[in-house]
Design a protein around this nucleic acid. Structure first.
Length: 436
RNA sequence: GGCUCUAUCGUCUAACGGUUAGGACACGUGCUUUUCAAGCACGGAAUCCGGGUUCGAUUCCCGGUAGAGUCACCA
């Protein structure tokens, strides 16, 4: 009695898919995994004019990046014979007929295949929304194929879902109104009706459907911005679903265990990139130094790619996403490129009234540094710490940090010294002193 | 407009009739600190409106209102 669960993700390669699409893939995948079922990937490329290979490749690449593995793969364009046989069968059984038309638009055929609508009420139980009822009369005899060899979406989904043994159709809410057509066709070909779960839409900031025009990004664009796949999965899962606890961060395994289709939200959710950034930061924190280095590499300035080992930890604690890195080198990490020109007053610690102490302490710092053999941040620190403790940490360290970086905001002065090296540090300290 | 779906802080959401309506992001304040970030503490912020049902409604029912989806020879 217990038939195996089979879900599917059925994108059409007519454009780049956005997070809304991939979230339906995620939910279908999670549902299949937690039921030890199968996950089918089906490329819906029946629209020959608009389907493009590059979009299909982008879908495959994205799914692979997210780590979703399908058990079976189909391309609808390769199943023409099957579709044709169903059209013939429907015509033979009187469920469909060839209809003479007067073309309304360019490209319209003079003859199409229409479904003979029984004009009845159909009801289905949506796993997320409960009972939904439609009167199909308003649908009329809808078109199921442009010709014997050119079936249209409604026919093809039903036939393929049936042939592939799909038990659970998990798709976007925008398909709710298509469902009665699909049920009618199922009844005509003698196919069982699968269980339906219509997911709420992911919305643009103005609460309308996400679209290119509204700034929806392909998931590969999030990858290019430097978001991690774990982040995207975690974030998409929580958009429209949550386990009812306060947990915010989930591994894939945890999602498989706790995901519950019946707890999916009914209303649409706006995609909030600020929170996405927060989630990504959390995942960046979890990365090992090696993982971080690998991921950060391509975002570093050319000249620093090979000698950024000491900068990496500084970068890691600052960014939300990897594409934040270049900007960092214009702000807090600009010391790697040199010191901008600054007014001598900038060297003054906020609790000092004039620059007298500043000059004295900078000289002390310079003196200690000149005498240093080993120039690690630890040794610099141990050489200077007693002075800082005695004279006041801010009073000593602020001018030093400013002299080395030329900025209000920068890394710790000891790290600056280590990264710059002894000669450069001395040069910058002397430069500061020359202003005083 | 017809049909369908939906409605809790700015945003994502929790509370399956009884809570001071909880959490997270963002925001504000403070602490810590050599700056920033992080961290910690605190704070402001919501049940769309109106009727029922009930001892009691965020929760159930009805009606409004608002928003969304869909009405293709696209998927």
């Amino acid at each position: 009695m217990s038939s195996k669960v089979v879900t599917r993700f059925a994108p059409s390669p007519t454009g780049l898919l956005h997070v809304g699409n991939y979230r339906t893939a995620l939910f279908s995948y999670l549902f299949a995994l937690q039921n030890r079922g199968k996950f089918v990937l089906r490329i819906e490329d029946t629209d020959k004019a608009r389907s493009k290979k590059e979009y299909e490749e982008n879908i495959l690449e994205s799914l692979n990046w997210l780590g979703f593995k399908h058990d079976e793969f189909f391309r609808q364009s390769e199943r023409a014979d099957i579709h044709k046989s169903y059209i013939e069968k429907l015509i033979k059984s009187g469920h469909a007929y060839v209809s003479k038309e007067t073309p309304k638009e360019e490209g319209d055929r003079a003859e199409v295949i229409r479904f003979k609508n029984p004009n009845k009420k159909v009801k289905f139980n949506d796993l997320i929304r409960g009972d939904i009822e439609f009167d199909t009369t308003e649908l009329g005899d809808f078109v199921i194929a442009k010709s014997m060899t050119e079936p249209v979406f409604h026919l093809v989904v039903v036939v393929d879902d049936f042939e592939m043994g799909i038990t659970h159709v998990i798709r976007g809410e925008d398909h709710i109104s298509n469902t009665p057509r699909h049920i009618l066709i199922q009844e005509a070909i003698g196919a069982p009706t699968p269980l339906y779960a219509h997911l709420p839409l992911i919305l643009a900031p103005d609460r309308s459907k996400l679209s290119k025009r509204k700034g929806a990004l392909a998931i590969t664009e999030y990858r290019e911005k430097g978001y991690l796949p774990e982040t995207m999965i975690n974030f998409m899962a929580l958009l429209g679903w949550n386990p009812g606890t306060d947990q915010e961060l989930f591994t894939m395994d945890e999602l498989v265990k706790t995901f519950d289709l019946s707890k999916v939200q009914k209303s649409g959710a706006i995609f909030n990139e600020e929170k996405l950034g927060w989630v990504n930061k959390k995942y960046i924190e979890k990365m090992t130094a090696e993982e971080f280095r690998e991921e950060a590499k391509s975002f570093l300035p050319e000249n620093l790619r090979e000698k950024s080992e000491k900068l990496l930890p500084l970068i890691k604690e600052k960014i939300n996403k990897f594409s934040d890195i270049p900007e960092l080198f214009n702000t807090e990490l600009s010391f790697t490129k040199g010191v901008p020109d600054y007014a001598k007053e900038s060297l003054k610690w906020r609790q000092e009234k004039d620059l007298v102490n500043t000059k004295e302490y900078l000289n002390l710092v310079l003196e200690k540094i000149l005498a240093l053999e080993d120039f690690s941040k630890e040794s610099v620190k141990s050489a200077l710490w007693p002075i800082a403790e005695e004279k006041g940490k801010g009073a000593v360290l602020w001018p030093m940090r400013y002299a080395l970086s030329g900025r209000d905001q920068s890394p710790d002065p000891f790290i600056l010294a280590e990264i710059l090296g002894k000669d450069e540090s001395i040069k910058r300290l002397k430069n500061a002193l020359s202003k005083l």
